[in-house]
C-alpha cells in the first residue's frame, strides 16, 4: 500500500474565540473517496481551506500527495484541484475562456489546454455552451464547469466542498456519475456534504464532524448500523383499524410506535425482506393501507443518534454570532 494521498493531522482552526475546527485527523488512501459529513457550520469548509493552503491552521498540519501544506504549499497546489462551496467560475468569461485562464495559470501549454479543455467540455456535456458566457449557464452547468476547471491539470487529488448543494436531483445524480468516473481513473477524492445519501453514494469512508470535532468515522454501512436501523412506516386508511394493525405488527416485530393523528405505525425493520413479509400479512387481512414504506436513517437520524441534537439546530457558535 502506498502512503495516503491526503492526511490531516490534528488540524485546529480558531477564529477569535470560536474554534471552527477542533483537532481533526484522518487519512485518505490513494484512489479512494472520503466523505466529510456534517451540518452547516460544522467546520467542513474551514477544514478544506486548511488542507488546500487557503487558510493557515492555528495548529496541526495536513499533507496532500505527500506534501506538507505549511512547508510546501506550492507542491500541494500542484497536486490538487479544488472546487469551492460556491461556484467560482468567472461569469463574464465563456466556459472555454475559464478553462484557458486556469490552464495558463497552471503553466500548461496553450495547445494542451485547448485539447484537454475540449475533452473536459465534452465529458461534462458543455461543448454546446462552451463559447457562451457563464452568466447564461444553469446552476448545474456552472457546477460542472467549475469541476472541469479544477480538472484541467488532471490533479491526482481533488477537494470538493459541497459539490451538489443547490442542485436539482437530476443534476445531482449526473454529477455523482462524473465523480465516479474520476475515481475510477484513479483520482483521490475528498468531498464534503450535508447529505448522508451523497456520502453513502460516493464515499468509501465517511468522517462525521460536528462543531469542529470528529464524532464518528467509518464506512457508510458501519455508520448507518450505528445510528439505528431502517424503519417500516405504515399508514392505515381507517382510524378504527389502527389498534388492530398495531397488535398484528407487534406479533412480528419487537417494538411498534403508534401515531394516532397520522394513523401511522412505525417499527424497526431490517430491510426490504421485512417489508414484503409485513405487506403479505396485511394483504391477507381486511385492513386497508394507505401507504407502506421503508424509511432509511436520514442524516437527521444519524445526527440525533450521534450527537443528541438535530442537524439543523444552530450550534452554540452560530447562536453566539447571531446575538
Amino acid at each position: 500500500m502506498t502512503s495516503p494521498a491526503i492526511e490531516a493531522e490534528h488540524l485546529v482552526k480558531k477564529f477569535g474565540d470560536t474554534t471552527a475546527v477542533d483537532d481533526v485527523s484522518f487519512s485518505v488512501p490513494e484512489g479512494s473517496v472520503l466523505g466529510l459529513l456534517g451540518p452547516n457550520g460544522a467546520g467542513k469548509t474551514t477544514t478544506v481551506r486548511m488542507m488546500t493552503t487557503l487558510a493557515k491552521p492555528t495548529s496541526g498540519t495536513a499533507r496532500v500527495a505527500g506534501h506538507d501544506v505549511l512547508r510546501e504549499p506550492d507542491a500541494v497546489r500542484r497536486s490538487m484541484g479544488l472546487t469551492g462551496q460556491a461556484a467560482t467560475v468567472d461569469e463574464l468569461l465563456t466556459g472555454r475562456e475559464n478553462l484557458r485562464l486556469i490552464g495558463s495559470l497552471y503553466g500548461l501549454s496553450g495547445s494542451y489546454v485547448k485539447s484537454a479543455g475540449a475533452d473536459l467540455l465534452e465529458r461534462f456535456s458543455l461543448t454546446e455552451a462552451a463559447d457562451r458566457t457563464v452568466k447564461t449557464y444553469s446552476g448545474g452547468m456552472r457546477r460542472r464547469l467549475d469541476l472541469a476547471v479544477s480538472l484541467i491539470a488532471t490533479p491526482p487529488v481533488l477537494f470538493l466542498d459541497e459539490p451538489t448543494t443547490g442542485l436539482d436531483p437530476r443534476s445531482r445524480v449526473e454529477l455523482w456519475e462524473v465523480l465516479r468516473g474520476l475515481v475510477k481513473d484513479g483520482t483521490t477524492l475528498l468531498l464534503t456534504t450535508q447529505y448522508l445519501e451523497e456520502a453513502d453514494q460516493l464515499a468509501d469512508r465517511i468522517v462525521v464532524i460536528d462543531r469542529g470535532q470528529i464524532i464518528a468515522e467509518g464506512t457508510p454501512l458501519e455508520l448507518k448500523d450505528r445510528s439505528g436501523k431502517a424503519s417500516l412506516v405504515l399508514t392505515v386508511s381507517r382510524a378504527e383499524d389502527l389498534q388492530t394493525a398495531a397488535d398484528m405488527l407487534r406479533q412480528r416485530v419487537s417494538e411498534v410506535h403508534v401515531d394516532e393523528a397520522a394513523r401511522q405505525l412505525t417499527a424497526p425493520a431490517e430491510g426490504l425482506r421485512d417489508m414484503t413479509r409485513i405487506a403479505a400479512v396485511f394483504e391477507d387481512s381486511s385492513i386497508e393501507l394507505d401507504d407502506l414504506g421503508l424509511k432509511r436513517p436520514s442524516l437527521d437520524d444519524v445526527f440525533l443518534h450521534l450527537t443528541g441534537h438535530r442537524a439543523e439546530e444552530p450550534t452554540e457558535t452560530e447562536q453566539e454570532q447571531a446575538s
Binding site: 500542484r78 460556491a86 468567472d90 497552471y106
Partner: peptide, 12 residues
C-alpha cells in the same frame, strides 16, 4: 465571488 480563492489554490 471566490475568484481570489480559486487563484490562490493554484500553483502561482
Amino acid at each position: 465571488k471566490g475568484i481570489v480563492d480559486r487563484m490562490r489554490s493554484l500553483p502561482i
